[in-house]
């Protein structure tokens, strides 16, 4: 169904991306890079939600790692201490972050500006505190051990190739869901709020409701990512869900650009590449430690905001389509000339 003049999903883009994801493990076979690519899939899911929240609802969350952590701990606690199936764990990894976000979003809905940013910052710190201190449930700073692997069709999903495909299946479903939302009347309503909130509400758009819904969706996506992370790792500890991780997600979205779904994906991939480079340099250059990442993130945030506030994806995508069109035109001219 084509509707001229309406932003719609370009499914060829999705197909090309799925192709790249499918082929990747055959081109790059080192297990370190494969596990990094699996992590990228998990981070993409978090970044997608944060991207929608920032680009479409115009809100910033500095606590996305907290939802990610709650998702991971929900399933980890239930599967280790209570012996639940990981698939039942998934239900709780979705429901608990969603509920927390709903309560926060509901109270925040009438506020605008940076209140949500501040509230989520505080929320992130509180959740980290809870994970460390609530030893009876989370076993404190040392973390939880013995998280079971996910069973799928009688097969145990272990790290490596199976888990890579498992994670990316979720990531691609998340991408499609986000594309659908962005290109539905919900996405349109959210875009209209950006240009004129007063006209949007005069047309009957309930701005607060959509902001809350997008916030809940971003928490659900982070929760699912947490679930994937927990069952990939044998153990988890609060250290993975600090403010640093929230800043990393934020950097991914800002770098890629929050005005399109692909921006979040692009930013996540770039940041992962940068992390790998920093890691490699750390092996040889003495002053580069893992903390060096944060210096890089800070630098990236400043440079992007100064030079390309819409992120890298929109200008690069525009440049790419222009080049392709020129090529196309040249080809036609050449065939005409000959």
């Amino acid at each position: 169904m084509k509707l001229p003049g309406v932003q719609q999903t370009k499914w060829t883009g999705v197909a090309i991306f799925v192709g790249i994801v499918l082929i990747f493990p055959f081109v790059i076979t080192q297990s370190f890079l494969l596990s990094q690519a699996t992590f990228t899939g998990i981070y993409v899911i978090v970044a997608l939600g944060l991207g929608l929240l920032m680009g479409y609802a115009g809100q910033i969350s500095l606590g996305q790692a907290a939802f990610y952590g709650v998702g991971a701990y929900a399933t980890a606690v239930l599967t280790t201490s209570y012996g639940l199936s990981p698939w039942l764990g998934l239900l709780f990894s979705i429901l608990i972050p969603a509920l927390l976000a709903y309560v926060m979003g509901y109270t925040m809905a009438r506020l605008s500006g940076y209140y949500l940013a501040m509230a989520t910052l505080a929320f992130g710190i509180i959740i980290h505190g809870v994970l460390v201190e609530w030893r009876g449930v989370t076993l404190g700073a040392s973390g939880l051990y013995g998280i079971p692997q996910i069973q799928l069709f009688g097969m145990s999903l272990s790290q490596g190739l199976p888990y890579y495909y498992f994670v990316w299946t979720f990531a691609i479903v998340a991408i499609v869901i986000c594309l659908n939302i962005v290109h539905s009347h919900v996405g349109r309503a959210l875009r209209s709020i950006h240009d004129s909130e007063i006209a949007a509400s005069a047309m009957g758009v309930n701005t607060g409701k959509y902001k809350t819904q997008i916030f809940v969706l971003s928490a659900i996506l982070a929760g699912v990512a947490g679930w994937l992370f927990a069952h990939m790792s044998y153990s988890i500890s609060p250290g993975s869900f600090t403010l640093d991780a929230s800043i990393m997600f934020l950097t991914m979205v800002v770098l890629g650009g929050s005005s399109s779904v692909w921006g979040a994906v692009f930013g996540t991939v770039l940041i992962t590449v940068i992390r790998i480079i920093v890691h490699e340099l750390g092996e040889t250059v003495p002053f580069i430690t893992s903390d060096f990442e944060h210096v890089v993130y800070g630098l990236i945030l400043i440079l992007v905001i100064v030079f390309t506030p819409r992120g890298l994806f929109p200008p690069i995508a525009g440049w790419f389509t222009r080049i392709m069109k020129q090529r196309f035109r040249k080809n036609i001219e050449q065939t005409k000339a000959s």
């Binding site: 509707l3 001229p4 003049g5 309406v6 932003q7 939302i181 539905s184 009347h185 919900v186 349109r188 309503a189 875009r191 209209s192 950006h194 240009d195 004129s196 007063i198 006209a199 949007a200 005069a202 047309m203 009957g204 758009v205 819904q213 969706l217």
Partner: peptide
């Protein structure tokens, strides 16, 4: 108070917003 970054038809479709019941 036009939605400048949307197309003409998308602008008018916002007018149909209240008639669309599709949730998120």
């Amino acid at each position: 108070q036009i939605f400048k970054r949307m197309t003409v038809v998308e602008n008018v479709m916002i007018g149909r917003h209240i008639r669309t019941k599709t949730g998120m």
